[in-house]
Amino acid sequence: MIQLQNVSKSFKGNLAIQNLNLEVQKGEILGLLGANGAGKSTTINMLLGFLNPDSGAVHINDIDTSHNSEETRKLIGYIPENVNLYPYLSGLENLDYFCKLAGLKYSKDELENYLEICGLENKVHVKKVSGYSKGMRQKVGIAIAYAKKAKVYLLDEPASGLDPLASNELSILLKKLASEGATILMASHDIFRVREVCNRIGILKNGILVKELYSKDVSANELEALYLQFMQN
C-alpha cells in the first residue's frame, strides 16, 4: 500500500509538492496525470526514498520511506520512462545481474520464465539489449521488479514512446500484476492509457492534487476535457 500524508517538498524555495494526500491500495492502479513539472517524478522519488519530504509522511506498506528507505526499497519495483539496461548484456543476463544484486539467485529456467511472464519473447532472451526496442527493455525492467517479488510498482511515464502494440502489452501486464495483488502507481501524460489501465486517476498541477476520480466514472473524452480544463485554469 502507498500512503502520502500532507506531503510537501520544495527545491530552493520553489514548491514542487504541496500538501499531497494520496493512498493506493493493494491490487489498485493509480494514474497520476500532470504536465511537466507538476511533481509526478518528485512524488515517485520520495516514494523511492531518494528524496525526503520537507513535511508530511510517505509510507510504503506502513513503513516510512524517509527513515527506512532500505527497507521500503526492497518492496518496490521501479520502471522509469527509459529502462536503460546494460547494452552489452542480454536481457537474461541483465535480469540475472539485477536479481543477484538484490540477493536473489534464480536458475536460467526461472529467469526465462520471468521474462516470458513479462511478455519478452523467448528468442530474444539471449540477444544483447543494445538491439532491443524500448518496449522490450521495459519488459525486462518489469521482469526485474517481478522477479524481485515487488509489492509496489512505481512507473514513471512507462508508455512514453511506445508503439501502440507495446503500449497495449504493457497495459495488459500491469493489470495482470494488479490482479496478483501488486500496488501500482503510474505517472503519465497519456490520458487515454491512464484511463484504460488505472482504477483511479489523480491530476497534479503545480504540486497540488487538484482532482481525484475513478476511471469507471469518466469516459476518455471526458477525462481529456477535465484534464485540459485544469491545466488551462
Binding site: 531518494f50 522509469p80 540477493g103
Partner: peptide, 13 residues
C-alpha cells in the same frame, strides 16, 4: 545519467 544508478540502489546496492 542513464538512470541505472537508481535501479542499482533500488536492488539493494
Amino acid at each position: 545519467q542513464s538512470g541505472r544508478l537508481k535501479l542499482l540502489v533500488l536492488q539493494g546496492a
